[in-house]
Every structure is written in structure tokens, then in C-alpha cells.
Design a protein around this nucleic acid. Structure first.
Length: 490
RNA sequence: CGGGGUGUAGCGCAGCCUGGUAGCGCGCACCGUUCGGGACGGUGAGGCCGGAGGUUCAAAUCCUCUCACCCCGACCA
């Protein structure tokens, strides 16, 4: 049993913070709003990166790197984009400090003011499209399929580890295409990649859809997103993919000659997914005993804890464990044999539970005599004693089972917490209770704003697969063609 | 920026109201016994009580000012 983690049911927010700290994922930094990602947390992010990067490569993308600094004039070019990000930009105005002549410390050297301020990128559309001007001449240069792994800064008023930090790590894909159709297909393809990642790797069921005008990315023609439901009934945007039309091509004067020898603007997309997903992972599966990780993203999938009284027994156990470790590793399973004698088994059990290691094996002298091994699974907190014979096969299957089981559980939770609501009183009551609320909406920005004002719920998305169904707007009773998903969100 | 809270040992906290030589738990170091769900005993190290000023014979404690962080809201991935 874990010591001193607040209960999810009593204080979700405190529970979340404790998991992040106690599992060694991240901690606060001296700079407000920024976080220190610790090795274990970063290992999870690296697993995410690897899975995504492979999928990006498999869909024809290449990685590149663009600078951290964006000239202010670049950011200004696309009007909506500029307005959208203006409020949260860190600005570099000087390039030098000097020793304070009046005493100790350093002060900004006034003689080092930049002619043009540099913005620390909140996203990279502008620098990238400025570069694309030189990269794109002919239809033969297209498509350009680039992804970048990096950091961005959005000066947030209020932050939470992983979920919203002023600086965060992410990937941003930026593509250019000859036709509108091709760009839209790319936007949808990458949304599909994100969905697959969320569901197959994170064991997190998501709904795919479109953002409303209000929630759309600043500068996009259309924003697609995936939304997931967290255990406290709040929604979390898990990834976004934008169809940018020709907006950035036009303002950066990027043109190409098409097959009919005409000067044409290319069509753009951009798509991103961030370290916020580590937060999503925690909130989706973890429990009052700590983190619960899906096997596919767990830095350690199997931990083996030796149990012995006499120091002389450890080598005997180790001898038996060696081949098991090898057999598991040969199957691509990451294993840790924790033979550290500074901690005792009970402590280790609790520790690996806190860290969400999917499978724990316990092996002691009793097992050596009986040819058995104890197998414990983190998701169900259950354990059983099994024959050592064929244990690798069993574990391989068990990891798959756990991965699937976490997904099934999360899906069942989402289904139990998705409600169709048709009148305003029910709507308000349900939003208060939490969950996804599917309701009719008259399609106007005004109604959306009023609903948000009165209930704090926003339209998370207009689902892609929603069935056409005529109805009346839950707020205005005006006609509506389909339901949209409302929720309170992170 | 509003509202609430907290700064005392590495971590978590008590002490403050009612000023009088800074304490508890965890962790840490060493010794011994332990080891199948966060072991136990013994010994020991560790703190200008967030910062500045004031009141007082005397301030962690009272007063003023400041800084930082956390939580709730407005902004947002």
C-alpha cells in the first residue's frame, strides 16, 4: 500500500501532483511555470517519441530543425496567427549583460538592444514557411513533409506539471502540398496517426473531430483534434492537426509553378503533440497506489525482485533469474532485475507499484525449491504463483493482455461517461457531474460563448463520425443537424 | 490580475494565539538483528525559522514592508 498519496476521489488535483512527484516523473523548476523532467518521466516521453517518430517516418516524413527564435516581423505576418499568440510570447530584446558598475550582479547592457526583437517560438509556422519560400519552386518540389522535435514557450498564467507548462517539449509537423485535397488528406492522415498512437500505445481511447471556429488554431482554416476523457470527467485535447489552407504561403510569398506553368500557392498543414500526453497518461490509468503505465510505454515492463534472508541465497536466485531476463529481453521486453540489497522486498513492491511497472516477478528460496515464480500485475494489483517453466511466454502474453485491458477499461469508462442530453437543465446538471455531453448546437459562436459562460463547458469537438440527426440546439432551440461534444476541459 | 493558502533540517510538518537557548516523523551515517507487502533497536550528523526593517532586556513567535511558491478563477495545447 502506498503511503500518503491523496485519494483520487477526494482531491484529484493533489493526487495528480503527488503521482508526478512520487513516481519521479517531474518537479517544479526555479523558473515559474517550467518543469524539470526527471529521468523516469523523460524515459516515458522517449518511448512516446520513438513510437511517433517511427509512424511519422512510415508516412514519409523527415525530421529537421528550425531555430528557437522567431523575428517579431515573422510572427506579425499572418494576422490571426499573430493575434492568437501575442498574449503569451517571451520576447528577447537584448543580447548582452554586463557587470553592474554600481555593485555586484549583472545588468542588461543597454548598448546591446536588438534592432528587431526576437520571439521565443510559441510554434514554428512562420520561420518554417519563411524557409519554404526558398525550398519550393516547382510542383516537383512538393510535397514537403517535415517534422521537428523541439521545445516551445507559451507564457501561461497558470501551469501544471506536464498538462500545461510555459515551456514544453513537442513535435510539430509542417507540410506543403500542391493541392488542397492533398493537404486535407495529410491533415486527416496525421490525425489518424495520433489516434493510433493514443489508442494502441497509450491505451487511451479518443474521439476524432473538428474544432469550432472559437477553438481553432490561430491561422488555420480547419483544426482537427483528438479528445480523451480523464478519470475525473474532464476532457483533454490530446493532439491537433491543422489544415492551414494557403494562409502562410500567401503571407510568406511561397509560390510554385504547377504542371500548367502557372504560379500557384501551395497548401499547408501542421500538427503537434506534446509532453502534455505524459499528463494524459497519468490521468487516464493511474490509481490511488500510484502510476499505472501501459506496457508499450513503460520504461521498465517487468521488474524482478529477489527475496532472500541469507546473502548467500542471492547468487542462487540470480542464477535462476539470469536466463529469464535473457529470454524476456530476446523478446524485446525491458526487464530490471533489482538485486539492490539496500532495500527490502516490501519496499520494492511498493516502489514499483508507485512507478507503474506493469509486471512484477517475485522469486525466493521457496520458488527455487518448487520451480515457481510469483507474477503480479500492476493494473489489477493481483498476483499468482506460476511454474517457472514457460514463464517468458506467459509474460509476453500478459503484457499484451494488460495493454488491452487498460484500453478496454478506459473505453468502458468513457462510454459510461458520455451522455446524450436534449434540454438545458439536464445539460447544466450533467456538465456539473462531468463527462462528455453530446448535445445539439445551433452552430453560432454566440451560443457557444454563452454556454461556456454559464457552465464553463466548451465544445470539445464536432465528431467526424457523428451521424446526421436533426434536432434543436440545447440552448437556443434553433435547428441543428448534428450533435457536438461538450465538456469541461484541461 | 482577483480570491485563498504556505514559507522552520534533504522531504513532510509542529511550535507562533499567551516572546525566554528550535522540536517531531521520514530520510541520511554507523552497529547489530531482520528480509514472501514500505522491518526493528541503539548511537549520531544535520536548521543564521523565505528576506528587510521595527518593537523589546529578549523575536520563529508581535508590527510594517517585501519576495517566492502552491491551490481556485480569468488565458490556453
Amino acid at each position: 500500500m502506498s503511503k500518503g498519496i491523496p485519494k483520487r476521489s477526494e482531491d484529484y488535483s493533489a493526487w495528480y501532483n503527488e503521482i508526478v512527484k512520487r513516481a519521479g516523473l517531474a518537479e517544479n523548476s526555479p523558473v515559474r511555470g517550467c518543469m524539470i523532467i526527471k529521468p523516469y518521466g523523460f524515459a516515458i516521453w522517449e518511448k512516446m517519441q520513438k513510437a511517433l517518430d517511427d509512424m511519422f517516418k512510415a508516412t514519409g516524413h523527415q525530421n529537421a530543425y528550425f531555430p528557437l527564435f522567431v523575428p517579431k516581423s515573422f510572427l506579425e505576418k499572418e494576422e490571426e496567427h499573430a493575434e492568437g499568440f501575442a498574449k503569451e510570447c517571451a520576447v528577447v530584446t537584448h543580447y548582452r549583460l554586463k557587470v553592474n558598475p554600481d555593485g555586484k550582479g549583472l545588468i542588461v547592457d543597454d548598448n546591446s538592444e536588438l534592432e528587431e526583437p526576437l520571439i521565443i517560438r510559441p510554434t514554428s509556422e512562420t520561420v518554417i514557411w519563411n524557409a519554404y519560400r526558398n525550398w519550393i519552386q516547382s510542383w516537383r518540389d512538393l510535397p514537403i513533409l517535415i517534422n521537428q522535435w523541439g521545445n516551445v514557450v507559451r507564457w501561461e498564467m497558470r501551469t501544471r506539471l506536464f498538462l500545461r507548462t510555459s515551456e514544453f517539449l513537442w513535435q510539430e509537423g509542417h507540410t506543403a502540398h500542391a493541392t488542397e485535397q492533398e493537404a486535407i488528406e495529410e491533415t486527416e492522415r496525421m490525425l489518424g496517426v495520433y489516434s493510433t498512437f493514443a489508442e494502441d500505445w497509450m491505451a487511451l481511447p479518443v474521439v476524432q473531430g473538428l474544432k469550432t471556429e472559437t477553438e481553432r488554431f490561430a491561422g488555420a482554416v480547419e483544426t482537427y483534434c483528438i479528445e480523451a476523457l480523464m478519470q475525473d470527467g474532464k476532457a483533454l485535447q490530446a493532439g491537433t492537426s491543422h489544415f492551414l489552407g494557403q494562409n502562410f504561403a500567401k503571407v510568406f510569398d511561397v509560390k510554385f509553378v504547377n504542371q500548367d506553368n502557372e504560379q500557384t500557392y501551395p497548401w499547408a498543414t501542421s500538427w503537434g503533440l506534446s509532453t502534455r500526453m505524459v499528463g494524459a497518461l497519468i490521468m487516464a490509468h493511474s490509481d490511488d497506489n500510484g502510476l499505472v503505465l501501459p506496457p508499450k510505454l513503460a520504461p521498465i515492463q517487468v521488474v524482478i525482485v529477489p527475496i532472500y534472508r541469507d546473502d548467500a541465497d542471492l547468487p542462487k536466485i540470480a542464477e535462476k533469474v539470469g536466463p529469464i531476463v535473457k529470454e524476456l529481453e530476446d523478446r524485446g521486453i525491458s526487464v530490471k532485475f533489482d538485486d539492490d540489497d539496500k532495500y527490502k522486498p516490501g519496499w520494492k513492491f511498493a516502489e514499483y507499484e508507485l512507478k507503474g511497472v506493469p509486471v512484477r516477478l517475485g522469486i525466493g528460496m521457496r520458488d527455487l525449491e518448487n520451480g515457481t515464480i510469483e507474477v503480479a500485475r500492476r493494473d489489477e494489483l493481483s498476483k499468482e504463483t506460476r511454474p517457472m517453466e514457460g514463464i517468458a511466454d506467459h509474460i509476453e502474453g500478459l503484457l499484451e493482455e494488460i495493454q488491452q485491458s487498460l484500453y478496454d477499461r478506459a473505453l468502458a469508462f468513457r462510454e459510461e461517461n458520455t451522455f446524450s442530453v436534449d434540454n438545458w437543465d439536464d445539460f447544466k446538471a450533467q456538465i456539473e457531474k462531468g463527462g462528455f455531453v453530446a448535445a445539439h448546437w445551433d452552430g453560432t459562436v454566440e451560443t457557444e460563448a454563452k454556454i461556456k459562460e454559464e457552465t464553463k463547458a466548451t465544445i470539445r469537438l464536432i465528431p467526424l463520425n457523428s451521424i446526421e440527426e436533426t434536432g434543436e440546439c440545447v440552448y437556443t432551440r434553433n435547428p441543428s443537424a448534428k450533435r457536438v461534444i461538450f465538456a469541461r476541459a484541461y
